[in-house]
Design a protein around this nucleic acid. Sequence first.
DNA 1: AAAATATACTTGCATGAACAAGTATATTAA
DNA 2: TTAATATACTTGTTCATGCAAGTATATTTT
Lengths: 146, 146
Amino acid sequence: MSFNKYQLDESLGYKLFHASRLMSNRLNQNFKENDFNVTYEQWQILSRLYEQDGQTQNHLAQINERDQASVSRLIDNLIKRGLVMRRPHQTDRRINLIYLTEEGKRIQLGLENLALKTIDEASFGISKQDLERTLAILDQIRENLK
Amino acid sequence: MSFNKYQLDESLGYKLFHASRLMSNRLNQNFKENDFNVTYEQWQILSRLYEQDGQTQNHLAQINERDQASVSRLIDNLIKRGLVMRRPHQTDRRINLIYLTEEGKRIQLGLENLALKTIDEASFGISKQDLERTLAILDQIRENLK
DNA sequence: AAAATATACTTGCATGAACAAGTATATTAA
DNA sequence: TTAATATACTTGTTCATGCAAGTATATTTT
């Protein structure tokens, strides 16, 4: 237990929280400016489907470290935007497989470039070495808390 | 612009996002386990009031880097929990001053200790030097994006 | 003083998150 | 084979966020 007086501004939680929020907001803004009607969270799902199309909701939830309820509603919204579709599993009727639509596939490169652009904006002036070190520390924090 | 293939798992945004979420969740959990009915975001407001009681909503929004609408509703929820109160400004009737209730003051130490505990949990196994470096990088990211 | 603008705050809407409870279908155990 | 349990997904509730629009009050301009 630390004995320092607590100061919100200087705390790890606060800095993480704000850096994360600013980065999500910036990506959303970059998407919007380029007429991609997709949120950061939806992009997390799409990104997994670009790696491999036709995954179950459960698997998408696991690899994105979120609960099924959350993924279920993200998929609802992606469907509403015409970017993915639900298909029943051939033998197991509990399972939905999620597939990209043509439109979903079409926007892949655009989204990826904006994601890369956002990372570049966020890491401006930070050395490759510092960035690597930070990513490793973030991994350690995630490991500690999961 | 980077030329690497985009990989969500390895990206700064993803790691920030998840580290931040895990940390908020852990703090919420720590609050809950100790019967403090307060969210991380509400704690951000309370923490400012512990530094100085009787601030305007606008000022709370500025120092916490969020919009007034968000603060307005956080205050609503803090009032619902009996932790703060709105008082009209003496001369300027547009302004609310936010004050801690007795109950709000009473829980200060408990909340602070749990915030410190959460930071300790998150930074387990990370050297003081690495942690300092990471906080500085997070500041740089915030500076880049704000 | 009246009109225009700025400030402080609130409300509405869409999105997302955590948690708990519910539904349908599969699998396992008795 | 029936009952119990596990799995995959959905829905309801409360809280939070971003954005835009709305209300009330102050201040500035004309």
